[in-house]
Nucleic acid binder design. Structure first.
Lengths: 159, 159
DNA sequence: GTTGAAAATAGCACGAA
DNA sequence: TTCGTGCTATTTTCAAC
């Protein structure tokens, strides 16, 4: 008689990165356009293996995609700001839609606490910032903080 | 007499993207690993031109780099949180250093307002979150909001 | 910006551990 | 399963226009 196949816990399989996966992720995090061959050299493997691993990381949901890091100031958006947004009673979904429809909001999280939304804004000028906030003013209370600089650039937690 | 050469404003030159640059940036934003040839097809140009444009966008500081979008939850960091941090008098720089040294802080902006820092945290558990905040507790006042979800995924403002 | 040729690379099928 | 090798098609890069 043959032994029955025991399926591994999905969560565990997905979230377990070995040393090599970690090196690949970290290299891709520094430069997502590295060629497969260069990655292969960096981690000491053959190109097809690296290619496979990347595909697996994507399939497991670890890699959500590859993107370009654009400096918004270099394209004319001189001001970045963080906006805490507290919709008036009954206006939660309306406000969420308004945020999504305003392309100056370049990021928005739903969070716990008094203010349900925390959004990031990129604008050309104070006037434009005011204009954006104005569209929310009858439906939500906002508090805005201008970004002066960066202490920690977006990075990966320890792998 | 010949007309004198009038140098263009640097700022203007750098920040002015034409239609094609915009298409390239937007395509790279969706998938930073698109091949040059594929990009060339998308924008209707030859590969060397596209290659040049990307190099120029990097040189101009518009493109800061290419990175991978990793789902922190898929690698075991089940909790993300936003932390507002107000250092006690005289402890601004100490606190900034503490934030930078803690790899669980995966992002931190310096902002205007009562709380000088706004940081993003990724942790495995509430216990780990508490541990991280504990390291700041004697030097700063913090308020923490857990991220429940995303209303707007990171996106580019209009080009 | 384009073209064309040389070098590097990616993708695939296959076999090995 | 996961990894490596060898082949072919594609891609990148550089020079010249």
């Amino acid at each position: 008689m043959s032994k029955a196949k025991i399926p591994q816990n999905l969560q565990t399989r997905k979230s377990t990165l070995d040393e090599i996966d970690a090196r690949i992720l970290s290299a891709l995090n520094s430069d997502a356009r590295l060629s497969i061959s260069e990655l292969a050299r960096l981690v000491g493997m053959s190109p097809p293996s690296v290619s496979d691993r990347i595909r697996r990381l994507e399939a497991a949901g670890v890699i959500r995609g590859f993107t370009v890091d654009v400096d918004t100031r270099a394209i004319g958006y001189q001001i970045r700001a963080i906006v805490r947004i507290r919709p008036l009673p009954g206006k939660l979904h309306l406000v969420e839609r308004l945020i999504q429809e305003r392309p100056e909001f370049i990021e928005c999280d739903k969070i716990t606490g008094d203010d349900p939304f925390l959004a990031r804004l990129a604008v050309h000028s104070i006037e434009q910032m005011d204009d954006v906030l104005e569209t929310l003013s009858e439906h939500a209370v906002t508090s805005t903080a201008v970004v002066k600089g960066t202490s920690v650039k977006k990075r990966l937690p320890p792998l």
